[in-house]
Simulated assay, not measured.
Amino acid sequence: MQHQGVCTRADMLRFRGEDEWFFEVTGYLQNWSVQAARDAIAADTDLLLPLVDDSDPTMRIAAAYALAAASARAQTIVSVFQTRLLCEDVPAVRAGLVLAIAQLARVHQNSNTVVWMQACWSDHVQPREVRVSAALGWMCLTDLPVPDELAALLDHLATHETAQLMAPLPWMRAAEHAAGNGLQRCLRTMLHPDTPDAEDRRDDPWS
Rank of each mutant, 00 (worst) to 15 (best):
R201S: 12
A10K: 14
M166T: 06
V25H: 03
A175R: 09
C186S: 04
H177V: 01
L144W: 12
V80H: 11
G27H: 09
G180N: 04
D46P: 00
E129S: 07
H156Q: 12
E176P: 00
T83M: 10
P168G: 08
A69S: 15
N181G: 03
S207G: 15
S33M: 07
A167G: 04
M12Q: 06
D204G: 13
R94T: 01
T189W: 02
Q103Y: 02
T45Q: 04
E20G: 01
P170L: 09
E199H: 14
D11H: 12
M1W: 04
T45Y: 00
L86P: 00
L85T: 01
Q4S: 08
V78M: 14
G96H: 05
T58Y: 12
A119W: 01
R38I: 04
Q118P: 01
P127W: 05
A10Q: 15
V34A: 14
P91W: 03
R131G: 08
V114I: 15
A92P: 02
A74K: 09
Q35V: 15
E129Y: 00
Q82K: 08
F15D: 13
A135Q: 01
A179T: 11
A167W: 01
R16Q: 13
Q75R: 14
V6S: 07
A105I: 12
V90G: 00
R38H: 09
A152N: 10
L154A: 10
D56N: 15
W206V: 14
A152S: 12
L191A: 08
H160T: 11
V130M: 09
D89I: 07
P168D: 01
M1A: 12
W21A: 15
R9N: 04
E129A: 02
D143S: 13
W171M: 06
R106M: 04
P50L: 10
N110Y: 01
R173H: 01
L191N: 08
H192W: 08
L99N: 04
E129P: 02
P168A: 00
S79V: 07
R185L: 14
T8Y: 11
A92M: 10
A37Q: 12
H177A: 09
A42Y: 11
M139N: 02
A151H: 03
H3F: 15
A102C: 02
A62Y: 06
V146S: 07
C7V: 12
W138A: 05
P205M: 13
P127Q: 09
G96Q: 06
H108F: 02
E18Q: 15
M1P: 14
S111T: 10
D54Q: 06
A36I: 03
P193Q: 07
